[in-house]
Nucleic acid binder design. Structure first.
Lengths: 418, 418
DNA sequence: GCTATTTGTTCAGTGATTGAATTATTTGGC
DNA sequence: GCCAAATAATTCAATCACTGAACAAATAGC
């Protein structure tokens, strides 16, 4: 029941194309067009864009409307002579995704509809470090139940859930290590099996996916701006430093889902020792604790979630130690980011999580290191910009990953819904 | 005529599925199965594996045989009662790929058939640094003509060519920078337009692709071992250090095709200055010149292609300075590799190019750094192994990339061949 | 009110897959 | 040696989804 899968593992490219697959694929193509279009497209628009005939598009759209995935919007603004087009939009009352997050000092739940609009959002502050994983999950389930009730009140049906965790998660949903939470080898799906399921069973949509927070935040950022880049690095600066890698519009998870561990890239070979066993790791220079210490602040004085805000305030006020700390952190981050950009040839770096607020001070030194170290920067400038969603990126991305799955393969939902 | 494209850019996932696409896709599916099977499969095997009916598979296979992409092998070894199966194999007399390489001190040409078997291979040693790009390409064309004549003598038809260059190549085939060759902004396709085309025009197969050497070497390594990993990092240690990244069986090229620039990853923040403008770059510690210098050898004394062999000889003989140089290079390489593995969560690193010969001495320090620095090494051991193809990986990979393209989309060849 | 124009639907036609029946070819038992 | 069982491959009518053209619907402009 709590079967888990990767967030974005594409279907094997070598799958045979059966007779029925044709419709299956075109359902996804048409729905994808509707989802990606800047304004509600007509059936004729989709036919022109895809090369399918209007007859085929009409048939496919009929299926999608019958399955409550698509609706017709008010007549689009007039464009000239001819019969007015009926605009197609993603349904606001069909399937929805439930996003959940467990972090060091808060729990969060979020529901998005097919279009990715946030329809419910709760954050509950609490220090979860002293709480056992089972208790933390029990609290989370209560939050999830409230979210589901609210979603149903709005006519939405939860089709699946994704849980963001600040740690390493394997393919089965086992949290191998979440250092800042104090978790090690926590079998989240097994612990949740005692609770009622969070979503309706839908073929092809796992009821719960457990995934690294930084990865889901990157997905959230990807879907937040439909015109944004399809390949970028999303760096979340929290207590640890995590990165989500988006390549060609898909999250890159690595062989085992452990990708993005950027916090231990060496930025100084004989530098400060690190808990990981290495020396001079990025986290020792650009992690939250390192910045606070360099700025002369005591971590115990302020809750973790306000650390970034506090630093931003001090920096804005011109506090010298803070400015110096951010400059040093930015330089270290720039060294690491330059390495990643050299390796992957990305042209966009998004500063997320705690870094989002600190972008005004971090971006210049990061850019400086990048343009100094990236060989190809001359031909292709690298953009460094703050996250659009900030600290909410992970929950929103988690919920979005569920509905994105439906958009990418609507046949599972349609077979269920009749 | 010399239109260029990326080596492995997959077709847009959102392409509409027309009526005819069905056959088109299944041709690729069946051909792919035949290519990937460890032994010649029967039509019934393919039907069982793909879920298509035997009737469909027979029809598809008929098309493939008529197009000279597939042949029937001798009766497979008996397996029990029943009518014996007819094994299907990739044709050895159909389309072939032409691989070319320009490097610092040699030119090479190579022809592989559909199955990836090397059917022709020439290497011509020559110092190409003092030669103009146009002259170097003219020499290469002579090599290519010989290769084509030999291929035609064997009944093969060249369907396209790929050229490996030790430098940055953009999407149009323009060599932006090949430092060790002294090239800058060399428009290879334009320069080759003066010569007769190297291959038959085949729809969907660009007549020439220009690509970074390290990327093609990684592809060569990928196809050299069908049972090998589908995600790995291939590090080529030549004068510069390049890496090819293979993810899920596909080459990752980055946004502009400049991925894999690993040579300037910092391994020492305040280390030796580097031509790139940074400090402490990997190349200053594990590049060929750095190793030679540390071993006390003068680079001028020996041609570049024998440098690795010379170092291997000295190391095998126990030469202390060489052993120390390799240990230092291995440690630096290990730091960089650990960063990549942390970032991408890969489980295999292939040491190629000059490093292949030096693996016995490089592997221990690389592994040591990796297991020390990679957080997830505890759950997923990282393999560091020498390249199977060694310095020939790039040419063979170049030729292979052409035939792989046909296997992935046979309809282009079939429409041409009738 | 009429025409041009664009949207969306209807319907016979086509291409590819399907599933069952048929043919082909071998092994093993009597 | 002959027959039954078994497996491989082919044939053929049926089906499913897309195609293309004709048609109905709805509006702007004259």
């Amino acid at each position: 029941m709590w079967q888990c899968q990767g967030v974005n593992r594409p279907a094997a490219a070598s799958a045979a194309v059966r007779q029925g697959s044709l419709r299956e694929l075109n359902l996804a193509v048409v729905l994808g067009r509707i989802a990606a279009a800047p304004r509600p497209p007509s059936r004729a628009d989709i036919a022109a864009a895809t090369g399918l005939t209007r007859a085929t598009v009409s048939a496919v759209v009929d299926d999608l409307i019958a399955g409550r995935l698509v609706g017709e919007s008010e007549p689009a603004p007039r464009t000239g002579a001819g019969r007015p087009a009926r605009g197609l939009v993603l349904a606001g009352d069909g399937p929805a995704g439930l996003g959940l997050e467990i972090n060091v000092d808060y729990l969060a739940a979020c529901v998005t509809d097919l279009a990715g609009r946030v329809r419910h959002h709760t954050v509950r502050r609490a220090d979860l470090r002293p709480v056992s994983p089972a208790d933390a999950l029990a609290r989370l389930v209560r939050l999830a139940d409230d979210a589901r009730a609210d979603a149903e009140r709005q006519g939405l049906t939860l089709a699946g859930a994704a849980l963001a965790v600040p740690g390493l998660v394997d393919a089965a949903g086992l949290v191998r290590l979440a250092p800042n939470l104090g978790w090690r080898d926590v079998p989240v799906p097994a612990l949740l099996a005692a609770h009622p399921p969070l979503a309706e069973p839908v073929p092809g949509i796992p009821p719960l996916v457990v995934e690294n927070e930084a990865n889901l935040a990157a997905l959230g950022e990807l879907h937040a701006d439909p015109n944004g880049p399809t390949s970028f690095l999303h760096v979340s600066g929290e207590v640890g430093i995590g990165a989500g890698i988006v390549l060609d519009g898909a999250l890159f998870r690595g062989v085992r889902g452990f990708s993005g561990e950027i916090g231990h890239l060496p930025v100084q070979l004989q530098g400060r020792p690190c808990g990981c066993g290495g020396r001079g790791c990025l986290e020792r220079y650009a992690g939250q604790e390192a910045i606070l210490a360099a700025a002369g602040l005591d971590r115990a004085d302020l809750p973790a979630d306000t650390a970034a805000a506090r630093l931003a305030d001090l920096a804005a006020a011109g506090h010298p130690a803070t400015l110096a700390a951010l400059a040093e952190a930015g330089a270290a981050l720039g060294v690491a980011v330059a390495g990643v950009v050299n390796l992957l040839d990305l042209d966009t770096v998004v500063l997320g999580g705690g870094y989002a607020l600190l972008t005004p001070w971090l971006q210049p030194p990061v850019l400086a290191e990048v343009s100094r170290r990236v060989l190809t920067a001359a031909w292709s400038p690298v953009t460094v910009r703050p996250s659009a969603l900030g600290p909410e990126a992970a929950v929103v991305g988690a919920a979005g990953s569920v509905v994105r799955r439906i958009v990418a393969a609507p046949v599972g939902w349609l077979n269920r819904a009749d």
